[in-house]
Structure formats: structure tokens, C-alpha cells
Design a protein around this nucleic acid. Structure first.
Length: 567
RNA sequence: UGGGGUGUCGCCAAGCGGUAAGGCACGGGUCUUUGGAAUCCGCACUCGGAGGUUCGAAUCCUCCCACCCCAGCCA
């Protein structure tokens, strides 16, 4: 079940940490960091990294820093830093006092850059962006040295100072590390480490007009913070030699180890900030917190409990092979925690009126029903029963196929925690549509049992017409129709695979009165249907709006699908 | 076609020379006042392929194949 041992599942990174500890490395200290760039909202792929980094720190009594990698002011914004902090906290992790920003190190980073110049390991290059690209060579051909590569230390120092002073326009000069233009690893071909960007930074304002690049800032920030294990995703593997090059070229507080793992891919969705931001901008979704989004904020609004995300991250493991995790794995984790915790109530999404013809006109029977049959300590609620009820349209069929064992003409079923009813008459409108059922009930079956012990095949959920409350229910489906949305036909992109039916809004739902007091964000199981939560943004006590978090497993749907296939 | 990686069940993933864990999915049984839950059973003679080393190989060696990453003044 749930991982209560406070330890993360074994994986190769944990093994490395354990070996380092055994070898006495870093004086037995473990310090990790989660280093997001504040240029978008966090998604479930980040949750994997958060659980790994914070989980490691927790397990080995170390620390995990939250550090914003804010070296590109053009893309970044405080809105994102606030959302990231909120999401990490919501996931259940605490960075304590260890909240940092790469921008806090700008002065020190600048000093390191000057030192690199003094050691003749960096130079100011005045090639245009296009020329730098041309000089870099290709994957199969080496690059050529920049004509500015041999500037003197003094000249470089002077030029770099003037870059900082704002004497040049964007792109006029850059500072480059002097490494090897012939390296088969392209990232070592004199990478740019500082560029001029006359842009206001969300934290440093206009104090700077030169900003460090990732490769330079990241390893040094790690070192400044005393990080022991710098965990990142596989696409940074080519940058690892560079990570070490800077730390070896300078005198730094410590030399962390960079370890890469495979990023998460989830079926039927996309996990890339670029693509997610596109969905938001295109208005394909209502925003970053649209309950269909794989963002942390979207999942939270949907009603997914943070614990489900944690167990999910634990179960998918951490490895180096590219993979596409089946979304059913996530769905299983969500159902697992909700099954244990969500109180049970009844709601009818597509109502069909039922008249109990032998039930007294104005009588309301107040039944008592458990909020969770397997956890009696969760208490009970009062369930009113009257002459006029509503059941789910799908629970009645005039001409039932063999495997359908719900209500049908002449058939007897149980109303959950209510009575046994038998369908006597089907009322239709002029179009031939079923609009009402006349049934009779067995007064001896109150509560759902019967003295003679006779069995019924089905138990239906229902709601009492007189006391039910109207509600809107939003049914969510996968955002994309294909397991890997990135595989689109020629000339199309991932948006081609968007599911046009990912949201269905049902506005004439009826819920039992107990739900009238449902709190914002509270999660419920609507019996036989699924788990639902009160939408934190749009729901009001007068106008209840529920989000379907996830359906219940539905073996009847499987039967139908199988029958459909046979035909 | 340079360099760096990865290939174990439909999907994740353990395994690190001693004869293939676990989870999801799937199929079946039991139980059931949710066609839910719970529970039981089944589900890789085989580890990308071909050779080789060894008493013994998913694990070691050789070659081959497939896929991913890298040519931002993004991270």
C-alpha cells in the first residue's frame, strides 16, 4: 500500500549516495537541490525530480535546496517562482531555510568569470551569433578558433568590464570559455558563458545587463551551496564534462557530482514546458491549472491528492532508459488513496425520474447510511427517501442485453441503502424516449435487505427528488487521443492529437443533501461512478461544481467494449 | 556520418557470473447492499540480435541492429 517507511524505492542514484556514504565522501553529508527555472509551471515530471531530490535528503538526513535557476530574465517571472514554491509545498516537501536563487550569486559568478579570464581560460568574443554558429563546426566536422580567441588578459578584462558597464548593445560581445574548438563534444567548443541582455530581471531589476549561461552558473551555484549530488535529466549528460571543467578551472568550495536520470514521459499527455505553455496560449485549456493539465496546479485543482503523486513517483522508479509510463499507473495511485479516504455519497449525473407508485405521496423516510462502509469510524449521514426519485439513465434499459443486470421492465433491483424496487411501467414522450419509470417498492426491504433473503442482481445509486441539490459536474478525459501525442502526421504537431472530448460538462446533476455543505476542494466518491472534488475556483455553496478526479474501475464498460468488438 | 547514452513481459522496473523480484495493464476464480473495494490464481524456459569465454551468462568479451541526446548569445 502506501509507503510509510519514509524511504524511497531503491534506484541507481540512491545506490550511488549509499556508496558515497559508505566511502565517507563529503563527511557523510548529503545535500541535493531542486533547481527549476521560473519560466513556467511545474508538472508531474518535475514531481518525479522533487520526490527524488527531497526524498534522498529526507532519507539520509541531509538537505534539499530549492534553487531558482534564474539566469535568463527574458523568460522568467515572479508569477512562476510563487507557483513553484506553492507546488513544492503542496507536494509535501519543505526546503526549510534553503531557498536560493542563482541571481543571488551574480556578483560571485561575475568574479569567477573574471578569474577565468585572468587564468587565460575565457575570452571576450566579438563574433556575431551567426558567425559563432558557423565557427562551431558541425557534429562531424570540428570547429575553428574564433579570431578573438587570442586577446590578451588585459584586453579581455577591459572588454568584460565594459560589457558589464553597459557600453555595448545586446549581442555585440560574449564571454566564452577557452576550451577546445575541435572537441567531438560540441558543448566543449568554447561555450558562451556570459551574454549581454539589456533586460530587467525579476529579482535584480536593472542591476545587470550581462547574465551568465546555465553551464557556467549551475555548477558554480551547486558548489557555492555545497551540493553533494547534483541530479538532473539525461539531456544534460553531454554537459557533464563542462560542469567539471569549470569546477576544475577555478578554486571552488567543493566539487559536486552530476548524476543524470531519464525524464518522465506519460501516455496521453505532454510534459514539456514549451508545449504546455502553448496549450495555455492557444486556449486549448483554460489555463495552467486546467484540471486536464499534467501540471501540479492542474492536478491539484482536479482533486488529485499529493500523496497519490508521491506514491506514483515512487513506483515508476528512477532509471536511465527513455520510457513512456502508462497513465493507468497514475490513475491507479489516485484511486488507491481516494478509495481509502473519500467518503461515499450518491449523485445522479444523468437523471431519469422514478415514481414509486405504492409509496405515500408526501412521506420522506430518513434513512441512515455509512459514509464509508469499510471505515465505520467515518460516521454516517441521513439519506432521505421519497415517492419521487431519480436514478442514472444508464441504469435502465428497456431491452436489456444478456449481460446487463440493472433495471429493466419487470425487473427488481436494490436502491443502495434504500429499498428494493420493481419496474412496472415505462413512460415515453412523443419521440419515444423514456422519460419516467413507474415502480413499486417492497416496504420490508428498508435499508436494502429483505427478510426472505432474496437476491437482486444489481444495486443502483439514486437521489430523492424532493431533497436533492442540483449541481454541475465536469467530466474529464485524457487531453490527447493517442498514447504518444508527439507522434503526429507529417506537417502536424502534437496539437493535432488533442482530444476534442476531454471535457464534458453536465449541468443537471442531482446530488444528495449531505453534499450541500461540501467544502471547497473536498473529495468524495459518488458511488458507482468515481471520485469527485469540489472545484476550488468556480464552485460556490449556491452553485456546486464538481470535478471528476477519476472514474471507478468499470468492468461493465469492459463487457460492453468486448461485446462491441464481437459484433 | 563525430561524440555521449539506452535496449529485461503490452507499460514501468529489479537484477551486477549461479540458473528471470515487484507494480501497472490484462485474463480467470472467490467474496460483495458500489459491475467498486478486498482476496486468490495465471501472465518472459527467456533478457535487442549473432558469435565467443565459462561447469554455468540478462550479467564478461566481440561484432551487429534499433532508439534517444548534442551544432541556443535556452535551461
Amino acid at each position: 500500500m502506501t509507503n510509510t517507511t519514509n524511504s524511497i524505492a531503491p534506484n541507481f542514484i540512491k545506490t550511488i549516495v549509499e556508496e558515497d556514504l559508505r566511502a565517507g565522501k563529503n563527511n557523510g553529508r548529503v545535500t541535493t537541490r531542486f533547481p527549476p527555472e521560473p519560466n513556467g509551471y511545474l508538472h508531474i515530471g518535475h514531481a518525479k525530480s522533487i520526490c527524488l531530490n527531497f526524498g534522498l535528503a529526507r532519507e539520509f538526513s541531509g538537505a534539499c535546496h530549492l534553487r531558482f535557476d534564474d539566469t535568463n530574465p527574458i523568460k522568467e517571472d515572479v508569477e512562476y517562482v510563487e507557483s513553484i514554491k506553492r507546488d513544492v509545498r503542496w507536494l509535501g516537501f519543505d526546503w526549510g531555510d534553503n531557498l536560493f536563487y542563482a541571481s543571488d550569486y551574480f556578483e560571485r559568478l561575475h568574479d569567477y568569470a573574471q578569474e577565468l579570464i585572468r587564468r587565460d581560460k575565457a575570452y571576450v568574443c566579438s563574433l556575431s551569433a551567426e558567425d559563432i554558429r558557423a565557427y562551431r563546426g558541425t557534429l562531424t566536422e570540428p570547429g575553428r578558433n574564433s579570431p578573438y580567441r587570442d586577446r590578451t588578459v588585459e584586453e579581455n578584462l577591459d572588454l568584460f568590464a565594459r560589457m558589464r558597464a553597459g557600453e555595448f548593445k545586446d549581442g555585440e560581445h560574449v564571454l566564452r570559455a577557452k576550451i577546445d574548438m575541435a572537441s567531438p563534444n560540441v558543448s566543449l567548443r568554447d561555450p558562451v558563458i556570459y551574454r549581454i541582455k539589456k533586460a530587467a530581471h525579476h529579482r535584480t531589476g536593472d542591476a545587470w545587463c550581462i547574465y551568465p549561461m546555465y553551464d557556467f552558473a549551475h555548477c558554480l551555484s551547486d558548489s557555492i551551496e555545497g551540493i553533494t549530488h547534483s541530479i538532473c535529466t539525461l539531456e544534460f549528460e553531454n554537459n557533464r564534462p563542462l560542469y567539471h571543467w569549470f569546477l576544475d578551472a577555478l578554486e571552488t568550495p567543493c566539487h559536486p557530482e552530476q548524476i543524470e536520470f531519464a525524464r518522465l514521459n506519460l501516455s496521453y499527455t505532454v510534459l514539456s514546458k514549451r508545449k504546455l505553455i502553448q496549450l495555455v496560449q492557444d486556449k486549448a485549456v483554460s489555463g495552467w491549472d486546467d484540471p486536464r493539465m499534467p501540471t501540479i496546479t492542474g492536478l491539484r485543482r482536479r482533486g488529485v491528492p499529493p500523496e497519490a503523486l508521491r506514491t506514483f513517483c515512487d513506483r515508476i522508479g528512477v532509471a536511465r532508459a527513455d520510457s513512456l509510463v502508462d497513465i493507468s499507473m497514475l490513475e491507479h495511485c489516485v484511486r488507491e488513496v481516494l478509495n481509502a479516504r473519500a467518503p461515499r455519497v450518491m449523485a445522479v449525473l444523468r437523471p431519469l425520474k422514478v415514481i414509486i407508485s405504492n409509496y405515500p405521496e408526501d412521506q420522506i423516510d430518513e434513512l441512515e447510511a455509512p459514509l464509508h462502509p469499510e471505515s465505520p469510524e467515518m460516521g454516517t449521514r441521513v439519506l432521505p427517501f421519497g415517492r419521487e426519485l431519480y436514478i442514472e439513465r444508464d441504469d435502465f434499459m428497456e431491452e436489456p442485453p444478456k449481460k446487463f443486470y440493472r433495471l429493466a421492465p419487470g425487473r427488481e433491483v436494490r436502491l443502495r441503502y434504500g429499498y428494493y424496487i420493481t419496474c412496472r411501467e415505462v413512460i415515453k414522450n412523443s419521440l419515444g424516449e423514456v422519460v419516467e419509470l413507474h415502480c413499486t417498492y417492497d416496504p420490508a426491504s428498508r435499508g436494502g435487505g429483505t427478510p426472505d433473503g432474496r437476491k437482486v442482481k444489481a444495486t443502483l445509486h439514486w437521489v430523492c427528488a424532493k431533497t436533492a441539490k442540483r449541481a454541475t459536474v465536469r467530466i474529464y478525459d485524457h487531453l490527447f487521443t493517442t498514447p504518444n501525442p508527439n507522434e503526429a502526421p507529417e506537417g502536424k504537431d502534437f496539437r493535432h492529437n488533442l482530444n476534442p472530448n476531454s471535457l464534458e460538462i453536465l449541468e443537471s446533476c442531482l446530488v444528495e443533501p449531505h453534499l450541500a455543505a461540501a467544502e471547497t476542494g473536498s473529495r468524495w466518491q459518488f458511488e458507482r461512478l468515481g471520485y469527485f472534488s469540489v472545484d476550488p475556483v468556480d464552485s460556490t455553496p449556491e452553485e456546486l461544481i464538481f470535478n471528476r478526479i477519476i472514474s471507478l474501475r468499470d468492468s461493465w464498460a469492459k463487457v460492453q467494449a468486448a461485446e462491441g468488438k464481437k459484433v
